[in-house]
Amino acid sequence: WKITIYDQENFQGKRMEFTSSCPNVSERSFDNVRSLKVESGAWIGYEHTSFCGQQFILERGEYPRWDAWSGSNAYHIERLMSFRPICSA
């Protein structure tokens, strides 16, 4: 599993790669995730830290803005603060 997060939209700004769970992006000096690329595996992104709040399934691909992973939710969530890989047995 591999995911790359960015602190600006369209894959700009600070970037960081992960191959395992991140319970709080702010502990990695990110205020928020504004864009991301899922390089391999599937991940679950969460609205809040500690894997809480609205969940987003993140499959392999590029997500240049928050609405790319938020989709058409009843209330739009511009925040992604934690994530972890989906492990299959």
Rank of each mutant, 00 (worst) to 15 (best):
Q8F: 02
W66S: 13
G13I: 01
C87P: 15
E9P: 10
E17P: 04
G61L: 00
I3F: 04
T49R: 15
S72N: 15
E17W: 07
Q54G: 10
E9L: 04
S29D: 11
R60H: 13
E47G: 06
G41K: 02
Q54Y: 11
P23Q: 13
S29E: 11
S50C: 08
T19N: 08
T4F: 12
F56L: 09
E39P: 03
I44A: 11
W1M: 14
G71P: 13
A74S: 14
G53W: 02
S82V: 00
C87F: 12
S21A: 11
E17R: 07
G41N: 04
F83R: 00
S82P: 03
Q12N: 10
R15W: 14
G53L: 02
R79M: 06
I77H: 12
K2E: 06
K37D: 02
M81G: 07
F11M: 05
I44H: 12
I57V: 13
R15F: 14
C87E: 13
W1R: 08
I86Q: 14
W1F: 15
R34Y: 03
E9I: 08
S29R: 09
S20D: 15
R34N: 03
E47F: 00
Y63M: 02
I44G: 04
S50L: 13
R65F: 06
A42E: 15
R28S: 10
S50E: 10
P23D: 11
Y6G: 00
C22L: 05
S72L: 10
F11Q: 02
N10A: 08
S50Q: 12
Q54S: 12
E59L: 07
P23E: 15
A42V: 15
R84E: 13
G45R: 00
G53N: 02
W1L: 10
E78N: 13
K14Q: 09
E27G: 08
A89T: 15
W66F: 15
A89P: 15
I5W: 00
Y46S: 01
W1K: 11
E78P: 13
P23W: 07
G45V: 07
E59N: 12
A89E: 15
A74W: 08
F51V: 01
P64F: 03
M81R: 11
F83H: 02
F18V: 07
E27R: 07
S29A: 10
G13M: 00
H48N: 09
P85T: 11
L58S: 03
F83W: 03
G13T: 01
C22A: 04
D67H: 13
Y63S: 02
I3V: 04
W69C: 07
D67L: 08
D67S: 13
T4G: 02
E62N: 08
E59P: 12
E17V: 10
E62M: 08
R28Q: 10
I5C: 08
K14M: 08
E39K: 13
M16S: 08
G53D: 02
K2D: 00
D31V: 08
F51G: 03
L36W: 02
G61P: 04
C52I: 10
R15A: 13
I44Q: 08
G61R: 04
R84Q: 14
R79H: 15
Y75I: 13
